[in-house]
Design a protein around this nucleic acid. Structure first.
Lengths: 217, 217
DNA sequence: ACATTCGATGACGGACTGTATTCCAGAAGA
DNA sequence: TCTTCTGGAATACAGTCCGTCATCGAATGT
């Protein structure tokens, strides 16, 4: 059978648009009802698409959520987290990284809450997207801890490895969410607190009083 | 219609045993496969019971998990957490509370991981059991922060309210799990780290070097 | 023995997932 | 224009799991 050449054009663009509509529908649905189970029927209706189309585009339910996670990283402003954390001055990188990642978490809170919980409950449910994200974060914290160590930031009794543990805990989505959703703190306030805890725990440069005065009262 | 009196006897005891068998089956299942979805068919088979029996006993799927959560609190050693935290000396209470709650989390890690994730994903899924547990923890942290404040433990620039935020974060199951499952730390080590972070962040009693008193530099 | 109660179950309906098949409209090529 | 190709709709169906109902049978009381 003769195969014609088909250039990317209107059709491919239309396909891309339906793909977007579906992803946006999932996003909207999760934001509208973060604590309710999602079914593809609802998503399909909201995206003005037939349910089998979701399978045609994403392959499976898991594929849909995997794509959503990748979409978040690609278009949700995650690059800013990476560039912030890689600042030549590790202390600046630490602070900016905390602020950037907290912003990122806050912007996509509901979607991330669902994706993380789904991954915990069923490893297959979101493919490896969350695992990959977290591996990246782990590697980043190893790097950051090493640079903080080299810069003489760490207290002498804190090994780089122990610093990784602390950074790993405090840059997690769960830590953000415990303070944000759990305690009602605004995103910027959460970042401030997490930086504060990190510095009090790790900072060994001689100082008796904390670096920044959190307003007393 | 005349109502006869029915004494607790063989029947009630047998009923209690099936109830236990079902709860044990859920527990065993979650431990055996923490990252796989649970279906009641499997539970029923493992408990050597027909699936409708689960509904007869617990009313619903949500009721089953609610009962599991309550069972954990009633028989899983949670009372030790309460008594530890209520130690007259708030500093001792803080340390013992951390240790006790970490032990509790570690003992029931897989079950708690599932229950918390289920609750996040579907508020109805576990009834209010998790919410109740967390409200209790919140109240406990408010109490503890107040007592730490009164005992002069808190740094002057740390309000009791800010201390609650810190304690809330660091006594959470998620914080435990990030260090335990995420970083591979043993339960006792996790407790040590969390106490360490807490004290460095909140402790205002005059000291320049960390409490463990390793030689400075 | 006989009636009553209640734990337990088999059978059924319904919701949701995933897949296969068919069809159509419109874009891409000749 | 006319043919070919393709994205998506529509439909149908199997499989899985949830939840309910009518019913059975063993334990309990009289």
């Amino acid at each position: 059978m003769a195969t014609r050449k088909y250039e990317q054009s209107l059709r491919a663009e239309a396909a891309e648009q339906t793909r977007r509509r579906i992803l946006d529908a999932v996003d909207a649905r999760l934001r509208a009802a973060p604590a309710e189970p999602v079914n593809l029927d609802t998503i399909a209706r909201e995206a003005r698409v037939a349910r089998p189309t979701i399978y045609a585009v994403f392959g499976s339910r898991a594929g849909l959520f995997t794509a959503l996670a990748h979409d978040l990283l690609a278009r949700g402003g995650f690059d800013r987290v990476r560039t912030s954390a890689l600042h030549p001055d590790p202390i600046q990188g630490m602070r900016d990284g905390f602020t950037a990642v907290t912003d990122f978490y806050a912007t996509h809170r509901d979607v991330l809450r669902s994706l993380f919980s789904m991954a915990a409950l069923d490893a297959e449910a979101v493919g490896g997207a969350i695992a990959t994200l977290e591996e990246g974060r782990a590697a980043g914290m190893v790097d950051l801890a090493g640079r903080l160590h080299d810069a003489g930031f760490l207290r002498p009794d804190v090994t780089p490895d122990a610093a990784v543990d602390t950074l790993w805990l405090l840059t997690s989505f769960d830590s953000f969410d415990l303070l944000h959703a759990g305690r009602g703190l605004a995103a910027t306030e959460v970042a401030r607190r997490l930086i504060d805890i990190t510095e009090h725990t790790l900072d060994g440069r001689d100082r008796i009083q904390p670096r920044t005065g959190l307003d007393p009262q």
